[in-house]
């Protein structure tokens, strides 16, 4: 079959006059170019490589020193965002690494730990802290992590008031901030998962505090701990208190519309207080059953 000749090619142009056309140079197509990243540090400063090294170093500590024991780990979702909320204790808090390590090894998904901006402003410590999953506790950061990236985020609503309390006040929860964690969870539309931790209080008990030193250092508090009695090196080592962690029933807010600019203050305070009560009661329950600080 003969190929039909295209008509356009045979048709002569109507006018032969050549019009000089001044075309602008063809702009390069604005298609995005590849992203030549060389490292694995994410936008929060967390590095999975460094995190896995930290996990490898910390694992013997977690298993054989603190002998962490979980109860109800299955209540933490394996996908989707959730805000983990726990009580906070120990001069150098030992609960945050234990919770993050436990969840990451069991569920295989990253946990971002929110903390005071003091860490970020401290050389070396701040960098390591960020690489290991620490994020400055700013509402915008939490919202982005929970809402847009559906991550697990750990927060201690007591803030630095939790670890700053002395030994005689152990396991008595401080005020849960201004309930900001409830507001963020509502806005992000994620459940709150309360966790009660027993053991951290005894791992580094504070005997008394030196507020003037804290002021001079710009730190939230400066503790004198029982661990310091064992020498300068032991000051950074936790006592081998038995760790027990109980995950409580998730609290979600199905009746609340996410992504609102404001939420009812009274509702927030009520929910915050209810969660605080829940953790406090769980702590009392766990302490009733605890026979020994060191053996559980």
């Amino acid at each position: 079959m003969a190929q039909p000749e295209p008509e356009a090619r045979t048709a002569a142009p109507a006018t032969t006059e050549i019009v000089p056309v001044n075309l602008p140079p063809v702009a390069a197509a604005p298609e995005p170019l590849a992203d030549p990243r060389t490292g694995d540090v994410d936008e929060w400063g967390r590095s999975e490589n460094i995190r896995s090294i930290v996990r490898r170093i910390y694992d013997p500590m977690y298993r054989h020193w603190f002998r962490a024991e979980w109860e109800g780990m299955d209540k933490i979702p394996t996908e989707g965002g959730a805000l983990l909320v726990a009580n906070h204790a120990g001069a150098i808090p030992s609960d945050a690494p234990a919770i993050m390590h436990g969840v990451e090894t069991e569920l295989g998904r990253p946990v971002y730990g929110l903390a005071d901006h003091f860490f970020k402003g401290t050389p070396v410590v701040g960098t390591l802290w960020a690489r290991a999953g620490g994020v400055v506790a700013h509402p915008d950061n939490a919202y982005r992590l929970l809402r847009h990236q559906q991550q697990l985020v750990l927060v201690f609503p007591e803030g630095s008031k939790g670890p700053a309390k002395t030994y005689n006040e152990r396991y008595r929860l401080r005020r849960f901030g201004r309930g900001g964690f409830v507001e963020i969870a509502m806005r992000a539309g994620v459940p709150i998962i309360p966790i009660a931790v027993v053991g951290a209080e005894e791992s580094m008990p504070i005997l008394f505090k030196l507020p003037s030193v804290a002021r001079a250092l710009g730190a939230p508090y400066f503790p004198i701990t029982a661990n310091m009695a064992l020498g300068p090196l032991a000051a950074a080592v936790h006592f081998p208190a038995k760790f027990k962690l109980r995950v409580l029933d998730p609290v979600s807010f199905p009746d609340v519309e996410p992504a609102q600019p404001r939420y009812s203050r009274s509702r927030i305070m009520d929910e915050s207080e209810a969660i605080r009560q829940q953790i406090q009661e769980a702590l009392f329950d766990m302490l009733r059953q605890r026979r020994s600080v060191w053996f559980g």
Binding site: E43, H117, V136, P139, D140
Partner: peptide
């Protein structure tokens, strides 16, 4: 500063 949000929005 260390207190900043990690991502500034136009309204911040």
């Amino acid at each position: 500063s260390p207190k900043d949000p990690y991502w500034f929005r136009e309204t911040d």
